[in-house]
Design a protein around this nucleic acid. Structure first.
Lengths: 345, 345
DNA sequence: CTGTTAGCGCCTTCAC
DNA sequence: GTGAAGGCGCTAACAG
């Protein structure tokens, strides 16, 4: 049977309250003698406080819920890991769940977390759980996404639009004008913003940015593979492109870019000589692909740290003002953009 | 303020117990009329049961703790994800934490989980938490590792030794005899077993398997990169190898193999023509490397399913007999072993 | 069929 | 400096 606080009290010859005083260093003092006897008894019996009972009484579980569409994606995986580490360091535990981007599941899991009285909630990008959906939640919420027009939660948001534009700009500086775009489903906010960033930057240079240059793809290697085959195929190229094949690809995520590189390899298309590639993410995989990816790196540790700090501040004091942070990525030059081949970058 | 069960009871004009009966479909029946009024009140007030109170009373949190050394490693990441999915499907939530292979952290996190009264524990390979360490734990435990000589927990274990031998055997069948080995720290059980598998298979064919052929490396791309540079360097090659460079590498994990491929690329060593590579894992990354990895694939979904099933069986009935399952991987032929170049495989 | 009640283990105010 | 007691919200045994 499990040993309870009363058992310790009995063993130490004190009352249960004193056990609490000693173990929690307060809120009342205890004599040195009582303290010693309690600690001895704790040791002897191997007593461990029941965190569930404590949570019920104290109204805090020291747990944060983390909802993400897909931890298999290295970006979300790394973000989740960084968040977890941060929370652990602060004495919190993370309850995590994958939603697979499926809205009913998202809601169900959100409810589950709330029922379990998590102290706070973190919603990563790629979910539909932003703005109004979260209104009913009592706990503080942090979203790694655009919070929409609603200010009910704090947010730490990658600058998807600007970062995408920066990636495209880099390709343009290499002299490319026919730059195609591989991107995830546009119902996901971050993907829509990256697509818009690509389009805006193309138009800024007065370059064509029609739909024939866009391939929507699953956020996976396989998705990138298929998209690249589509965009680079010599068959059925739209008349609007005057028979030209894109000379560069902007790819909205590293994981898709890995698939793109593979497709190019299979098709005998050289990267970056025949087609240059720039992607977004900056995950570990990007640094060890062949050739290495030029990518706009998001610092997940920074995202996680600022996000967790703000969330825990809100947990400690719900009256803390909301914050909305936007974080720029930075271009990490690899081998896929062409900088290392011809010195035009 | 949060709405409690008593509020619902008051609103519905019944007693709190009846609310429980209705919401839990038992343990006692309720009249159709009472049921309707309760459900109305629940709806109207937006009542959600407090899972913490329920857990305290019922003695079950419907939560499982998962301890892993490093979720950044695609293999553990995929395993964790599969486990999480399994548990969610059964109405459980997963509490997860990374130990970074650091024993004090492992113990601390284990304690934290136990304090929180998880219903069960899952320990992935790569931790030191096997056997006796877990004796003090009351909850059922499942380890994805060798449980040691101690039968206090159930286990689902990849056949590291046999799988490693199979990988080496495949290289041997391609005519290689000087097969080096890249492997993680031997204090980790799975790594030690893979190393032993390599050695046993080499000796089986009467081939040299000395320590000069082994490079211990961090379980990361960078680790594989460094190990490959060491083993393939033309400088300082041990006299015992008669000046020969290994013609093949057995790499104990995909993530290291990605680094190995990159090092080969950098060194101008062609894979598989100059050096053949076979690794272990079978993660998604292996299928999209250039060239694609020949690897011994572990079916993480199968591991997770059988593991979770057994654990939840133990949770439901602690008297369920322990089980110890060993699971073979299967060789997935890619392009790094040489099968696709010369038809000798 | 329904209501009342005794805890689950802990924290903390209040009385000594 | 210490002990007794109430209650966090819920479940289930026990009485009606």
């Amino acid at each position: 049977m499990v040993v309870t606080r009363s058992d310790v009290a009995r063993e130490a010859g004190v009352s249960p309250a004193v056990v609490s005083y000693v173990l929690n260093n307060g809120p009342r003092p205890a004599s040195a003698q009582a303290r010693a006897r309690v600690l001895d008894a704790v040791q002897k019996l191997g007593y461990r406080p029941n965190a569930i009972a404590s949570a019920l009484r104290a109204g805090s579980t020291r747990t944060v819920g983390f909802l993400t569409p897909n931890r298999g994606n290295p970006f979300f995986g790394a973000l989740a890991e960084a968040v977890e580490q941060n929370l652990n360091d602060q004495g919190y535990l993370m309850l995590a769940a994958n939603t697979h981007g499926y809205q009913p599941d998202e809601l169900k899991l959100l409810r589950t977390f709330v029922d379990r009285r998590v102290d706070g909630l973190i919603i990563s990008g790629g979910t539909t759980l932003v703005g109004p959906t979260l209104q009913e939640v009592e706990q503080p919420v942090l979203v790694f996404d655009d919070p929409g027009s609603w200010a009910g939660c704090s947010s730490v948001q990658p600058e998807d639009h600007l970062d995408a534009a920066a990636a495209v700009d880099h390709l343009q500086n290499h002299g490319h004008d026919l730059i195609a775009c591989v991107v995830g489903p546009p119902r996901i906010g971050s993907e829509a913003r990256r697509l818009a960033g690509w389009r805006a930057q193309q138009r800024l240079r007065g370059v064509y940015a029609g739909d024939e240059l866009v391939a929507f793809a699953d956020q996976s290697e396989a998705g990138g593979d298929q998209a690249a085959r589509l965009l680079l195929s010599d068959h059925g190229r739209p008349a609007t492109l005057h028979g030209r094949r894109p000379t560069a690809l902007f790819v909205a995520s590293d994981v898709q870019a890995i698939g793109v590189l593979w497709a190019c390899h299979e098709l005998g298309v050289r990267v970056p000589e025949d087609v240059a590639v720039v992607s977004m993410g900056g995950t570990r995989a990007a640094a060890y692909s062949i050739p290495t990816l030029t990518t706009v790196r998001q610092d997940v540790v920074y995202l996680a740290t600022t996000g967790c700090t703000q969330l825990l501040r809100l947990v400690a004091d719900p009256l803390t003002p909301q914050t909305h942070l936007r974080v720029r990525g930075n271009l990490v030059v690899g081998q896929t953009c062409g900088c290392t081949v011809a010195g035009s970058g």
